[in-house]
Design a protein around this nucleic acid. Structure first.
Lengths: 226, 226
DNA sequence: TAAATAGTGTCTTTTAGACAATATTGT
DNA sequence: ACAATATTGTCTAAAAGACACTATTTA
C-alpha cells in the first residue's frame, strides 16, 4: 500500500503569568522558512520518539526546565497542505502552563527566546491560530480543573492563585468570595501550615495544589452570552 | 535539514445512541495488519488534503452520510513509535456524533461495519485508548455544550434529548427538572411549533437545536468525587 | 373511564455574588 | 494609631433537585 509522506513536528504554547498578565514564550526563528520571525518553540519529532516525549524534550531545550510544578498536555494537530513551504508537515501542538521563571534559555534552534503578552500576532506558519487555541484551552481549563496552580510555585497564597485567574481571564474577581471558593472546594488547594512573612499587611497562609483533577462545582467565568 | 518520515492517518470515533445506549461504529479490518480484527474506521490522509477534509471524507465513505445534523471535531493525535507495525504512523483522531441511522454502509476498505455498544475492547492498534478518549470527550461536552442535539434528528422532543443524556452518561435524570432546564436555558433548543402525534400519552412539542455554542449555566452530571 | 406521557408549580438546599466586619501584620 | 492585606460572616439572588400536581392524548 502506498501513501503520502509527511514530516511531523511538535509546537509548544508555553504560557505563564508575569507582571500580572498572561504571557507566552516565543522564539525568533534562526533559519528558513520565516527567518527572523517570531514563532512558537517546537521542532521535528525524532525517528523513535513518542509525541509527548518530543514535546517534553522541546520544552526542556527551549526553557531549560522540565522540573515539576508545571503542566503539559496535548492541544491539537494542524495539517493544512500549505501550512509549511518545505512540504507536507503536520504539527502536534502541546500546551504548557508554567510558574513565572527567571528567564528563558535560548535553545539551539532559536536565536532568541522571550516572554511576550499573549496579544501578539504576526507569528510564523499558522502559529497565530495555534496560540489562540491554546489560550482558549487554558481559559476553559481554569474553570473546570485546579490547573491554575500550575502557574504558581509549589507553595502559594490564595491571593496569588486569584491573580492567576484575573490574568488569564482578564477580569477582576472579588478576593473574599474567591477565598471562600478556593478554600472550600474539595481537592482544590491544601494548606501547608506555613505563611508568608515580611510583606505589608496580614501574612497569608500558604497552600499547595490539591489532588482533585476536576473542580466540582466548577469556577465559572462571567460570560457575555450563552 | 533532514527529518524522519511519517505516514498520517485519520481515525474516527463515530458515536450514536441506539436502543437506549451509546454505540460506536466499528469496522472489521479487510487487510493486514490486524486482519479481521475490529477497529475504528479511518484511513490515510491524501497528498493534498487537510486533516478535517480527510476526516469528513472517511466519515462519508464509511457511513454513507455526510449530511447535516451531526457533529465532527478533532479529538487528539496518537503517535507512539510502535503503534503501527507498518512503520511510523501518526493518527489524528476525530469524534463524530450522529443521530441514529438506518445502518452503516460498509466502506471499500472494510469487510463489515457495525454499531456496537461502547463497552467493547480488544480493538486493533491503540483504538481501545482512542475510543475511551472519545467517549470521555463526548460525556464532557454534553455538560457544557448543546451537542446532545447532534445525536437527535433535526426535530426532536425534550424526552428524546433527555434519553441521549441518560444513554451517554449512563444515569437516569428526572424528566421534570430536565424539561425545565432544557426549555429555559437560552440557546439550547428552540420550539418548532410542531408536536408528535400517534404515540401513547400527551403529544410532545418538537424542538430543534438552538444557536448557543455553550450552555450557561452548564448541565452537570453527578460526580462520585471531585 | 384508566393508562401513559407531557408539562407546570412549589418547596428546600446549594451556590454565587455583593459587601460588612474582623484579624494580623508593618510603619 | 493607621495602612494594608487576609480571612470570616451575612445577606440576597440564582439555580439544582425532590416531587406534587395538572394537561392531553390513546385505549
Amino acid at each position: 500500500m502506498s501513501y503520502p509522506v509527511f514530516a511531523v513536528t511538535v509546537d509548544l504554547v508555553v504560557l505563564t503569568v508575569r507582571e500580572g498578565e498572561l504571557q507566552v514564550l516565543l522564539v525568533r526563528r534562526g533559519c528558513e522558512p520565516f527567518l527572523d520571525r517570531w514563532a512558537l518553540p517546537g521542532g521535528f519529532v525524532l525517528a523513535d520518539e513518542d509525541l509527548a516525549t518530543a514535546a517534553r524534550r522541546e520544552l526542556a531545550e527551549e526553557t531549560g526546565l522540565d522540573g515539576p510544578g508545571g503542566h503539559l498536555e496535548q492541544l491539537a494537530s494542524y495539517g493544512a497542505p500549505e501550512r509549511d513551504p518545505r512540504g507536507r508537515v503536520v504539527t502536534v501542538a502541546y500546551l504548557a502552563l508554567l510558574p513565572d521563571l527567571p528567564a528563558p534559555t535560548a535553545g539551539t534552534d532559536a536565536a532568541e527566546a522571550e516572554w511576550r503578552p499573549v496579544g501578539q500576532t504576526g507569528l510564523a506558519f499558522d502559529h497565530d491560530r495555534i496560540l489562540a487555541d491554546g489560550i482558549e484551552r487554558a481559559r476553559s481549563k481554569l474553570e473546570y480543573t485546579p490547573l491554575a496552580a500550575a502557574f504558581c510555585p509549589p507553595e502559594f497564597t490564595v491571593a496569588a492563585l486569584r491573580q492567576v485567574y484575573e490574568a488569564v481571564w482578564g477580569e477582576s474577581i472579588d478576593p473574599r468570595n474567591f477565598h471562600r471558593k478556593a478554600t472550600t472546594t474539595p481537592g482544590f488547594i491544601d494548606p501547608t501550615g506555613g505563611a508568608t512573612e515580611g510583606g505589608t499587611g496580614r501574612p497569608a497562609r500558604l497552600y499547595r495544589r490539591g489532588e482533585a483533577s476536576l473542580l466540582n462545582p466548577p469556577l465559572l467565568r462571567r460570560r457575555l452570552d450563552g
